[in-house]
Structures are given as structure tokens and as C-alpha cells.
Design a protein around this nucleic acid. Structure first.
Lengths: 148, 148
DNA sequence: GTTGACCTTAACCTAACGGCAAGGTTTTAC
DNA sequence: GTAAAACCTTGCCGTTAGGTTAAGGTCAAC
């Protein structure tokens, strides 16, 4: 038989054994067959699903989103319309992140370039303190992900 | 006296009481005075330090980096040169993130724009599966931060 | 028969808090 | 004068997507 163990399956799809176990624990893939001693065994059709997950991850989808797509498909629905919606939400998020990063970059280079002019008589560090009004805090991508 | 409780101090610097407690637990600010019943009490000079932390955070520095700056200053050193180095490292990281996001955005819009052409006969979702070779995985900013 | 490469689960680590619990305190309103 | 609202305390769990041990079982090769 051509059943693969988790490490072999991981190598086949270009991911890690740990990641595959996590996907399984999170319900993205069903409980796999086990060998007599308990090793996970993956078939070719299992690999298709694993590859799908990896490709979706390459597109920046979260495991939760991928699970939703997979569940939709399981219910017989075609998830593609929701996927397009999802992609558009991600594109919008990327645009926000790009704008934030551009702004932050401008602030940072500005601060760095004026570092010389700032005498070292700030209380802690003049570079950080002597730069006029604080621009509104730039929230990082990861912050936005966690709390709206 | 004008000692502020943690919630008042948080409001004064534009952060949260929870964040201030965290900064204290991580050693960015010393153990503050306490009222008779154990409430944290902050003076004006405490606020300066809190404001410094918030400003440094606005520049994208991590709490660990800010602590290092604060510790340097405590040892009598002027942290500014290291701060410049830090800023340049952050700018470089931002540039990498920008490049990654631009690439991911291009991939995403490409996938979205060709969604119509892809018949729904993919195993799970044609949009995700039928797009030729997978570009190398784009690692997100937060991944890079956690493990080199 | 032992070394080394693989597998198992479990638990801890990352960044920076938010949320909630369970209880004590202060303030405000009736 | 007291009751409720609004604070405060500590502490633990949750968030992302796994990496990294730990402790132990399994399998192939030498």
C-alpha cells in the first residue's frame, strides 16, 4: 500500500508534520487511519486535502477560514462565492496594512533622519521623545486580527 | 496629592490600565507606589515614563526593545545610537513586509479576477486549486517576528 | 543488540494584551 | 445610611500557527 506516515505526507505537500497534526486537531482534516501502533496513515486523497489546505494558506487564508470552506464543501455547497468574498476581504486588509506600513515607514525614516539634530538632553531618549505631536498610533496587522 | 490610579494614568497617556499593568509586570516600569489598600499610584514623573513607552510603541518598537532602551538609560548610557540601529532594523523589516504584501496582493487579485473562468469542477474549490504553480509561501510579518 | 530516524501525546513558548472571575474599595445617588 | 455603580486587585484562559522540547514507543539498518 502507498499509505504515507505523517512525516512523509508533510514532505509531500511541503509542510511540517507538526502542522498536519495541528490541522487535524482543529478539524480541517478528519481523523486519519492509524497503523497498528497508532501512526497516522495518509492516502492519496488525503494528500489532495492537505495540498488544498496548504494552497489556501499560501493565499493568506487562516485555518479558521479554510475550515469554513472545507465544511461548506462537505455540506455539498460550492464555496467559491464565499471564497471570492473572503479574498476581497483579505485584499482590503492588505491595503490597510500597506497604508499603515507606508505611514509607519515614513515616520521611522523621518525620526531616524533627524536623530542627529536632536541633542541628547531628552529625559530618556531624545529621538523618541522630541518629535512633536505623536501621529495616531499605527495599529499593526496582527493587532487588527485579534480584536476588531 | 495628584497621584493617579492606574485607570486615570491610562486615560492620561491614551492607553489601557491592563497595558500599564503588563508593562509593570514586564519590568518596563518599576513597582509603583501603592495606596493603603494596594492601588497603584502614579506621579507625574511616572507618567513621563509611561508616555515614553507609548511613544516608542507608536514607532513600532516591541516591549522588549523598549525595555532594553530603558535599561540602557538606567545604566547611564545614552541609548540613542542603539535606537537608530533599532529603527533601521524596523525599517528594513517594514520593507520586507511591504514587498511580501504587494506580492500577496497581486496573487490574490489575480486569483479573484480569474475566478469566473474557473469552472466549479475542482475537487474542493476551483478558485484555490486551479491556479497553476503555487508561488512560494509568503510569510507574514508576525511569522517572521516569532521564528527567524 | 544497539544506534538513529521516525512516530506518539502533552506541554510550554512566542506578542500584547482582552475578557472574565472573584473579591475588595471608593464614589455616587437616593 | 446604604446600595449600586464604578473602580481596583490578582490570576487564568484565549487569540495565530505552529516550533521546540520532553518522555517514551517503533522500525530499519548495521
Amino acid at each position: 500500500m502507498n499509505a504515507l506516515k505523517v512525516g512523509e505526507a508533510a514532505a509531500a505537500i511541503g509542510s511540517s508534520a507538526r502542522a498536519i497534526r495541528l490541522w487535524q486537531a482543529k478539524g480541517l482534516i478528519p481523523a486519519s487511519d492509524r497503523s497498528e501502533v497508532g501512526y497516522r496513515l495518509f492516502t492519496e486523497s488525503d494528500l489532495d486535502r492537505l495540498r488544498f489546505i496548504r494552497q489556501a494558506k499560501d493565499l493568506g487564508l487562516t485555518l479558521g477560514e479554510i475550515k469554513r470552506i472545507l465544511d461548506l464543501r462537505q455540506e455539498g455547497a460550492t464555496p467559491c462565492p464565499q471564497v471570492v468574498t473572503l479574498l476581497e476581504a483579505h485584499i482590503a486588509a492588505i491595503d490597510r496594512a500597506l497604508a499603515d506600513l507606508h505611514r509607519l515607514r515614513a515616520t521611522l525614516t523621518g525620526v531616524r533622519d533627524h536623530a542627529d539634530e536632536l541633542a541628547g538632553d531628552g529625559v530618556i531618549c531624545a529621538i523618541i521623545e522630541r518629535r512633536g505631536a505623536c501621529p495616531p498610533a499605527v495599529r499593526h496587522e496582527r493587532d487588527r486580527a485579534n480584536q476588531g
